[in-house]
Amino acid sequence: MVDIIILLTLLALGYGFGRYAEGRHYRSIIQREEKLQYLVAVSTKIIPPGEQYSQSSLVCGNVVISVDFFKRFLAGLRNIVGGRVMSYESLVDRARREAILRMKQEAEALGAKLVFNVKLETSSISKGGGNSIGSVEVFAYGTALIPHS
């Protein structure tokens, strides 16, 4: 009986804190995305012709977001019956957007107007670590183009 009580407590904690953190994170993401809307990040390798840039620089952004207990439990139940792992979708979405934002913030600090050749790398931390709660890492990197000042 004790382990069921512990499980339910962990689930409630995971749900409460996870929901709160996710809501706060999304609000911050949306706000910063709006602010950095002017700074374009594209995956193309071709520099748009016509404009002159004096400098280019590697910019990158990296984020690690942990799964909460509730999300992991839901994903575990999904493992049995199959289907979309909806609890992980928002997690990965947040990680991608946050990584790009951090990359853009770095580009902004350099005074760049465009980041091209943007790539995303993901890895999961503590993969195969048995019962440990995993985290998702997203690494965004690209080449920032800094115009003549």
Binding site: Y15, L74, M86
Partner: peptide, 14 residues
């Protein structure tokens, strides 16, 4: 990229 379904609904169903 995310689903709007409430996670608790999914939890109780599963």
């Amino acid at each position: 990229n995310t689903s709007s379904e409430h996670p608790l609904k999914e939890f109780f169903l599963l």
